[in-house]
Design a protein around this nucleic acid. Sequence first.
DNA 1: GTCTATAATTCGATAGAC
DNA 2: GTCTATCGAATTATAGAC
Lengths: 218, 218
Amino acid sequence: MTSITPAAPIGNRAAASEARKQRIRDAALALFSQFGLRGASLDAIADQAGVSKTNLLYYFPSKEKLYVAVLQQILDTWLEPVRAIDAEQSPETAIGDYIRIKVELSRDHAQASRLFCLEMIQGAPLLREDLQSNLRLLVEEKSRVIEGWIARGSLRPVDPHHLIYLLWGTTQHYADFAVQIEAISGRTLADPAFFEATVENITRIVLGGLLPRTNADS
Amino acid sequence: MTSITPAAPIGNRAAASEARKQRIRDAALALFSQFGLRGASLDAIADQAGVSKTNLLYYFPSKEKLYVAVLQQILDTWLEPVRAIDAEQSPETAIGDYIRIKVELSRDHAQASRLFCLEMIQGAPLLREDLQSNLRLLVEEKSRVIEGWIARGSLRPVDPHHLIYLLWGTTQHYADFAVQIEAISGRTLADPAFFEATVENITRIVLGGLLPRTNADS
DNA sequence: GTCTATAATTCGATAGAC
DNA sequence: GTCTATCGAATTATAGAC
């Protein structure tokens, strides 16, 4: 008798359905980020999500569709800190904030960082187009912001691309190589003191070399 | 009638055998570094090495044995630049040389870098012990070298661990994220001008922030 | 040492009952 | 929407001839 229209406010069924899809995506992120697209099995993902494999394939019609769904949920979050870089800010504020936010992402979304890294290592077959268009334009835009800082003397000369790569590389390293860092330092970013030391040291090295020298410097 | 003793000088048979094993290891590195342990099939590796799958399994009795053989061949090469860091050198020379050598490795052994990264992302199940003992000791030793530089005023204060992580992260990034960098910059490290610009910018950012300020600085 | 043939699993995906 | 049952392909590894 009752018929649910697609545009209706989310009812119990639809909400439960979306919740189940999210549980599947979460489980898929955990396993894809550790074993890769081919290394993670639908059996294992369904098991971790608490659903049957058949049921998983009801919500995501193929393994690759599930993989893409997980990747797309990550991408925007990942580039948001880059988008936030603004010419109006001082380089000290903009770069300092960027470093902190990226280290926070490495702490709170390490699996997402690792899946992104895995996809890059494998040649990013599913993201290549996006990289060559959207990401390239974004980096060009922010490079001009950095060049503006250099032109008005608030940043010492540096190639903007290489600065951006250095910022990406150092901050993501704490998520992607977390095992190595924990084996050596015995700490993780979950430790507040280690987190602060990470942000502070990266910031000091990068900004210490790039901010103009004042007479106060020894 | 003729019997080959194990200690005999390498004859044609033994040389051919070793050459074939090396071809298999090379093919395995190429495919493991792109698809991971589970994602690369012995069929594909044997095919790329130009041998039959059965023959591959004659030389390496299991897939995991082959994987470990490839990993071990990488490890020493990879840590050699760290070992070369010497207290007798000036920090400018030691760190500058380290950056150049690591970027050379990222250029000439990108697949090895990526396989190492893959193994770390997956939790380094086969290297964990080695990390917690050998690598940890190596990093402690080099940290004391860095602390010595700071104590005698030839390096500004910085946490040695975070400096080492930053150097690792930025240099390896050019190998592990080569696809992303090529999509954005349109260049690779194979381009000599891009290679030099990479070394120079990383060096300038890191050393610019860490070397003591002189009166010549503006 | 190298091959063919095949054993023994595992995996992604589908069919069809309920 | 969810389940059981199962197909068909791919994969690691072994057996045995030469």
